[in-house]
Design a protein around this nucleic acid. Structure first.
Length: 640
RNA sequence: GCCGCAGUAGCUCAGUUGGUAGAGCAGCUGAUUUGUAAUCAGCAGGUCGUGAGUUCGAGUCUCUCCUGCGGCACCA
């Protein structure tokens, strides 16, 4: 007797074990046709899975969110089958569903070309048309290893070894093609549909290990229907238009050139944005009780040996040798400098917590392949700070930083910030007790504030756990921005102490934190986030005064002067061009405000305001306009 | 760093089987004085990323290096 409860509360009873497929059939032919998988006691299973005990069952159809993952995983299998049909001798390795799609890693000596992708896509469609049933088989692991070895599938054979001994090894078969896979899968290849597209080929290391073989990864996107696929492709096209590298050129914000790979040439307009970000952060930090310092760009190698960075990151450091044979390090981080400031004079427990900030430009010789526009560079500016405090103050100081970061992101419209918590790594220093303390302080800060986070086990720094605050770019790539790290190491290595209540010297806990993280990266994210259409307070050029004929030139100059005097960043366009031309040009340049002046405005001391993206104009008296724009252009409330 | 792809005028791109570089926009000059997303005409602009090789001849073929792009690895 098997009792199956359905989501609507009904209970079905069976005398003998059954399958989800049979249950669906029993409920109705329509459901049986639409059924893709089953959720049995919360676990996603094949439709054909045998049900031999009481359970809760939900039939999964294309309408369910989770169906998409199944479908994408199937797409990966179908692609692998297509590839092996077309290119015999190609080995399959792993191929999971991922956000928006799937990939599969192949081992093949010939590279896949864009033409190959088209062929593979066609063959995938054929396999869908064949509507091959997808069936699951449980295998003996040694038998399966034998089969894979015989087929020359050494990667697959290697994978089997990693499956825990008590877990069954399952194989999914579609036609005469099969793959070792945990499943679940759709009932047949026909259910996949054709709303998929192969996107790109890329290299990927076997098992994500750079010492192992380089495989070829084919990425695809897959959706429930053609409409979703089209929407996704359109989203990517839109995202490309707001790529910060493209907007950086189009809006004359910055450039790169060969002589300085990974280093930015900021142009006037881009630098205005950068300066605005610094101004903003400085104001926030002033309000939050931080000091601000500046430390040397280059310091003797010995300091970096003492801090431990020399040993760990030597190959990523820029150095410079002087005539006197001293080797200096161009700073890759600010903490050793910050600690030198802390160490001046004797610090008392009464001085703690001491918050020392620095807008520090650092240089790191990053791997060439890592460079990416403003997001990953070799020279960047951190809005860095080091908070020296006692163990007792640790959690509340962490909480203050977390609150500050999220509050700051809100001023830029980022509400959906992901927080990652990285705990103790294998290779670490310090006792487990200290780690317990540090981790619980960090976690406690998050939990008391009610923020959710994801865990990155073992990803902490060797000296302490860390939080990372992750923002997304226009095409869904994640970039780490803010960070908060707890450090018991550096103060000890560099000899930072304070005198406690007991008159003894103690070692402070040191928090490393950056809120924007890298100003360059944050600027890049903002460019994409706003698609170049910055809010008024951030816009490099806030307004352009444009004339209709040169009869209004004199008045236009007055208007611009008044705007500038009111603190607005205003340009003027006196060129002998039609107003249509000027409107178009400044609109494309994404200037938020155009103040159009012609004979009428000059005569009446008014301006015609046109807002970016708007059609209508608004005629205002000049005084009134300036008063209003001044208010509109004000920085966020938080720093007023 | 690794795998793959790319580099032609400031930008976007064209350039047939190797025969000695072209367009649009931008720029400059002139005309036009214009009312909310491109006024017209003319001019100028490139040792085709770098270095080598093959060839009678290379933007086109081969190799080196540089830079970029897409991933992977890395990210104190």
């Amino acid at each position: 007797m098997v009792a199956i409860r359905l989501p609507d509360g009904n209970e079905l009873n069976f005398d003998a074990p059954t399958t989800a497929a049979a249950v669906a059939q029993g409920i109705g032919a329509g459901l049986a046709k639409a059924a893709l998988a089953a959720r049995i006691d919360g676990k996603l299973m094949d439709l054909s899975a045998v049900i031999d005990r009481d359970c809760e069952l939900a039939i999964v159809t294309a309408k369910d969110e989770e169906a998409l993952d199944l479908l994408r995983h199937d797409a990966a299998h179908v692609m692998a089958q297509a590839v092996q049909e077309l290119y015999p001798g190609t080995q399959v390795t792993i191929g999971p569903a991922i956000e928006n799609g799937f990939y599969y890693d192949f081992a093949r000596s010939e590279p896949f070309t864009p033409d190959d992708l088209e062929e593979i896509e066609k063959r995938m469609a054929e396999i869908v048309d064949r509507d091959l049933p997808i069936t699951c088989e449980v295998w003996d692991r040694d038998d399966l290893i034998g089969v894979f070895n015989e087929k020359g599938e050494s990667y697959k054979a290697e994978l089997i070894g990693d499956i825990p001994a008590d877990e069954p090894v399952t194989v999914y078969r579609q036609g005469d093609w099969f793959d070792m896979c945990r499943g679940p899968h759709l009932p047949s290849t026909g259910k996949l549909g054709k709303a998929f597209k192969l996107m790109k080929v890329a290299g990927a290391y076997w098992r994500g290990d750079s010492t192992k073989a380089m495989l070829q990864r084919i990425y695809g996107t897959a959706w429930a229907d053609a409409k979703q696929l089209k929407a996704h492709i359109e989203m990517l096209e839109e995202a490309e238009k707001r790529d910060h590298r493209r907007l950086g050129r189009e809006m004359d914000l910055f450039h790169f050139q060969e002589e300085a790979p990974g280093a930015i040439f900021w142009h006037d307009k881009g630098w205005r944005l950068f300066r605005k970000l610094v101004d903003y952060m400085r104001a926030r930090q002033d309000l939050a009780g931080y000091q601000e310092i500046a430390t040397p760009e280059i310091m003797d190698r010995s300091l970096w040996e003492a801090s431990g960075h020399w040993e760990t990151f030597r190959e990523h450091m820029y150095t410079t040798q002087t005539e006197d044979d001293r080797l200096y390090v161009i700073k890759p981080m600010n903490c050793p400098g910050g600690i030198q400031v802390f160490k001046q004079g004797i610090k008392s427990y009464r001085d703690l917590p001491l918050k020392i900030a620095e807008f520090g430009k650092v240089h790191r010789y990053e791997a060439s392949g890592a460079l990416h526009g403003l997001m990953r560079v070799r020279a960047f500016t951190q809005d860095d700070a080091h908070i020296f405090c006692t163990h007792e103050q640790l959690e509340s100081e962490c909480a203050k930083v977390v609150r500050l970061i999220l509050d700051i992101y809100k001023d830029f419209g980022f509400e959906d910030v992901r927080i990652k918590f990285s705990d103790r790594p294998e290779k670490r220093i310090g006792s487990d007790e200290v780690w317990d303390n540090l981790e619980s302080a960090l976690k406690g800060a998050l939990e008391h504030l009610g923020y959710s986070y994801t865990l990155n086990p073992g990803e902490g720094a060797f000296y302490g756990p860390k939080l990372e605050f992750v923002l997304r770019d226009a095409i869904g790539r994640d970039w780490q921005c803010g960070t908060l790290q707890v450090d018991m190491n550096m103060p000890a290595r560099l000899g930072a102490t304070y005198v406690g209540e007991d008159g003894e010297r103690h070692q402070p806990v040191m928090l490393h934190r950056a809120l924007f993280g890298s100003l360059e990266r944050f600027a890049g994210i903002l460019i994409e986030h706003y698609a170049g259409k910055f809010p008024l307070w951030l816009a490099p050029v806030q307004a352009v005064v444009a004339t209709i004929t040169n009869e209004a030139d004199g008045y236009a100059r007055d208007v611009q002067e008044r705007l500038v005097a009111a603190g607005l960043r205003a340009d003027i366009d006196l060129r002998n061009e039609k107003i249509n031309y000027k409107v178009r040009e400044h609109s494309l340049a994404k200037v938020p405000l155009m103040l159009v002046v012609g004979g009428r405005e000059a005569e009446n001391a008014t301006v015609a305001i046109r807002r970016l993206g708007g059609k209508a104009q608004e005629i205002l008296e000049l005084d009134q306009a300036i008063a209003r724009l001044r208010v509109e252009a004000a920085a966020p409330e938080s720093i007023r």
